[in-house]
Amino acid sequence: MTHTLKLAFAVLLIALGPQAARAEPVADFPSRPIRFIAPIPAGGSTDVLTRDIARRLQERWGQPTLVENKPGGAGSMGAAMVARAPADGYTLLLVNVGHAINGHVYSKLAYDPVKDFTPVVHATTIAMGLFVNPSVPAKSLAEFMALARAKPGGFSFATSGNGGAGHLGGESFKAATGIDMVHVPYRGSAPAIADVVAGQVQVSFADVPLAAPHVKSGALRPLALAAPRRSPTLPDVPTFAESGVANQELSVWVGFLAPAGTPREIVDKLNREIVAIIREPAMTARLIGLGFEVVASSPDAFAQTIQTDYERFGVIVRSARIKAE
C-alpha cells in the first residue's frame, strides 16, 4: 500500500469513528472478554440471572465473561458507563423497567435511555402486585377500594423509592380509581416490604418474588397483580383486570442492552446465544423458581417494549409530578 493510500485509509478510519477500527467479522465474535455491567448491588435475583447467563456464555464461547456491579442513581450510573462504551458488543448493560422511568424522574441524565442503547434481549418479566398487612380488613381488591374511599388518605403504601416501579404502580392505581393513599418511599424494596410485614405501613406495591414468601407464611395478603395474567408463583391471586380495574399492567421487565451503534450482526448473535441459554430446561426451571416469567424476545420486540413503556411512564410521572430523591 502506497503512502498516499495509507494516509487516505487512516483519514477514512478517523471519519468513521472508533467503531470502524474495532470492526470484526461476526464469526470471530467474541475474540476477547465480555463485560456485563449490572447497575445494582450483588446478590439480588436479577444479579443472579445475569451471573448465570454470563457463566453459560463463557462455557459456550470459551471467552471470559465478567459481571461488574455498579449500583447508584437507580441504575443511571451503570447505564452511563455502557452508553459511553465502544459499540462493539463487548460491554452489555443489565436493565429493568426502571431504565424507562429514569429519563422522566431525573432532571438530568448523562445519556438518553432510548437513543443511546441498542436492545439485545428482553430476558424475563417479574409480576408486581398490591399487598397488604393482614390487619387490613379487606380480602379482595374491591373490599380494599371500599375501605380506602371511606377514609381518604387513611392508607399509606410503601415502595422501593421515589420514581420506582412500585411508586408508578401506586400512582397509576390512584389515578384509575380516585383513591387517595400516601406514598412512603424507602431505600430499596426489602426494607419497604419489611415494614409492611411489621405493620408499620399497611400497603405495598412490590414484586412477586419479594412478596411471595411473606404471602405463603401469612405475613402478607395479596389483593391483585399488575400483570396481564396470573403468576405461577401465586396462582390464586387475580389480576387488576380480573378485579375490575383496567389498564394497570406494570410488570418489571429485565433485559440487556448494548451501546447504540453496535452492529446488528453482533446484536443478533448475542440475542441468539442468550435466548438459547434462557430456554435451556434447567435455566428455565431455575428462573421460574426465582419468580421470573421467561420471555426471551427478539431485539426488535424489546425495543418496542422499551419505547412503549417510556412513553407510558412519562404520562404517569408528569401527572403525579414524580421526581427522584
Score class of each variant (00 low, 15 high):
residue 224 A to K: 11
residue 303 A to D: 07
residue 194 A to I: 04
residue 132 V to I: 13
residue 250 L to P: 00
residue 276 A to W: 03
residue 213 P to C: 05
residue 121 V to F: 05
residue 103 G to K: 12
residue 116 D to N: 11
residue 1 M to Y: 06
residue 29 F to M: 07
residue 236 D to M: 09
residue 149 R to F: 05
residue 122 H to W: 14
residue 242 E to I: 08
residue 226 A to G: 15
residue 168 L to D: 07
residue 99 H to R: 14
residue 181 M to P: 07
residue 126 I to N: 00
residue 9 F to G: 05
residue 85 A to M: 11
residue 231 S to G: 02
residue 84 R to C: 01
residue 224 A to V: 10
residue 236 D to L: 03
residue 63 Q to A: 14
residue 219 A to T: 04
residue 263 P to T: 10
residue 276 A to T: 11
residue 35 R to Y: 10
residue 235 P to G: 11
residue 243 S to F: 07
residue 61 W to K: 05
residue 63 Q to S: 11
residue 180 D to A: 13
residue 37 I to E: 01
residue 268 D to K: 09
residue 51 R to M: 09
residue 273 E to N: 09
residue 171 E to S: 11
residue 265 E to F: 01
residue 154 G to T: 06
residue 277 I to W: 02
residue 309 D to Q: 14
residue 150 A to N: 14
residue 292 F to G: 00
residue 115 K to C: 00
residue 77 M to Y: 09
residue 190 A to W: 00
residue 323 K to A: 15
residue 196 V to Y: 05
residue 90 Y to C: 05
residue 303 A to M: 01
residue 273 E to A: 12
residue 266 I to V: 15
residue 307 Q to Y: 01
residue 28 D to C: 07
residue 162 N to K: 14
residue 12 L to R: 10
residue 51 R to P: 10
residue 162 N to E: 08
residue 243 S to W: 06
residue 2 T to Y: 01
residue 214 H to R: 12
residue 299 P to A: 01
residue 176 A to N: 10
residue 122 H to Y: 12
residue 143 E to H: 06
residue 275 V to R: 13
residue 48 V to T: 15
residue 44 G to T: 10
residue 239 T to A: 08
residue 118 T to N: 08
residue 133 N to Q: 02
residue 150 A to Q: 14
residue 173 F to H: 04
